[in-house]
Each structure stands twice: as C-alpha cells, then as structure tokens.
Computed example of a mutant assay.
Amino acid sequence: MTPFGARLRTLREARGVTLTELARALHVSAAYLSALEHGHRGRPSPGLIHQVNEYFGLIWDDAEEMARLARISHPRVVVDTSGLSAEATALANRLARDIRRLPPETIAALHAVLEAVPPKG
C-alpha cells in the first residue's frame, strides 16, 4: 500500500463511498482505484489528485497533504547511489532486499532517524 492509497481508502471508507461510486465520479475504473489503494499502481496524475480533492471537499492543508502523499507514493523506487560511498550503496541494496521483512516499529525507527537529518541546502 502507498501513503496516497492508504489516505484515499481512509477518506472513502470514512464517508461510506464504495470504490465503484468513487470510480464513476472520477471517470476511472474501480480496478484502477483498487490498484492505487493497494500500491499496485504508481503515482496518480495531478488531475486525478485534484479530482479526489474536489470530490471529498479537501482544501488548503488537506489538499496539499494529498498532493504530498502522491509525490511519495511510487511503489517502485530507484535509488541512485552513483558517486556515494560503498557503504551507502550497500545500505540501499540491503534495504531493497529486506524491506518486506521489516516490522512496523523498525520502519518507524528508520523514519525517525531520517527525519533527524538536517535538510540539504
């Protein structure tokens, strides 16, 4: 599941909207929305994000959050470690190999470590 897909499902279920109803309103297939929710499709288009925001009446911060979630929701990520250390490349490969086995608390801890890194710039 992707962050965008999880949020879409939460919104849809909280409002009692079925996949078929939402698909009809957005002029897409229910299969496509299901694939988005389950992380089997890549990032949605900006147009679809806008449609989702309008359908659910999301404005300001909530609409921007949906756009942010879409940006970080590509289920097949490529990490370019060219020019980085051997350790960085090994870490990227290890994460790619083992991410499916990591428990939620480990993933949360890794997020916390990365959040503590000062922004580039």
Rank of each mutant, 00 (worst) to 15 (best):
R97H: 11
A112N: 01
S73G: 04
Q51A: 15
A86H: 11
D61I: 09
G83R: 00
R43P: 07
L102S: 00
H111L: 11
A6E: 12
L69N: 00
T18L: 04
K120S: 02
R15T: 11
G47I: 05
A23T: 06
P118N: 02
V113L: 13
I99P: 02
A35K: 11
T18A: 07
L22H: 06
S73C: 01
R43E: 12
G47N: 12
L8I: 08
T81Q: 07
E87Y: 08
V17I: 15
T106L: 15
H38Y: 13
L11V: 04
A88D: 14
V77N: 05
V79N: 01
K120N: 00
A70E: 06
G39D: 02
G57E: 01
L58V: 01
L95P: 03
M1I: 09
P44N: 10
I72T: 12
M66L: 14
A63W: 03
D80I: 08
P3L: 07
L22F: 05
G5L: 03
P46C: 00
R94Q: 11
V52R: 00
R68V: 09
P44Q: 13
T18H: 05
R9C: 11
V77R: 14
A6T: 13
R43Q: 15
S29T: 15
H111V: 11
V117L: 03
L8S: 07
L102G: 05
A86E: 13
T89N: 08
A88W: 05
S29P: 07
L48W: 04
Y55W: 05
